[in-house]
């Protein structure tokens, strides 16, 4: 059971990483990075590491995404077209 979930989530994570580095749309790359953190925290929990899972959930999918978005806003100030 655990191995099925880990395999499926791992494949989805690899696809998300591929999307994050290959896409031209920066916002899509940020969202894909958020997906990677999300699934990574589930996988850490399955490997019996709740501390790491909580850190990944709080920092990886919450704070890092938002700091990326703030940075995107700072470098795109005044440029109103995506």
């Amino acid at each position: 059971m655990i191995s099925i979930i880990i395999t499926v989530l791992g494949v989805v994570m690899i696809l998300a990483a591929f999307l994050a580095i290959r896409t031209k749309n920066l916002l899509a790359a940020i969202i894909s990075a958020g997906v990677i953190s999300l699934l990574a925290s589930v996988i850490y929990l399955m490997l019996a590491a709740p501390d790491v899972a909580m850190t990944e959930a709080a920092i990886g999918s919450g704070l890092t995404t938002i700091i990326f978005i703030f940075t995107l806003k700072k470098i795109r100030k005044g440029d109103l077209n995506d």
């Binding site: 916002l27 940020i30 969202i31 958020g34 999300l38 925290s41 929990l45 709740p50 899972a53 909580m54 959930a57 709080a58 999918s61 919450g62 995404t65 938002i66 978005i69 995107l72 806003k73």
Partner: peptide
């Protein structure tokens, strides 16, 4: 004790989506 991770996740995860929306 694994439920604590779910509590943190349920509370934190929506902030990222709100940030994307506000952007």
């Amino acid at each position: 004790i694994y439920l604590d991770v779910a509590i943190v996740y349920g509370l934190i995860s929506f902030v990222g989506i709100v940030a994307v929306a506000r952007y």
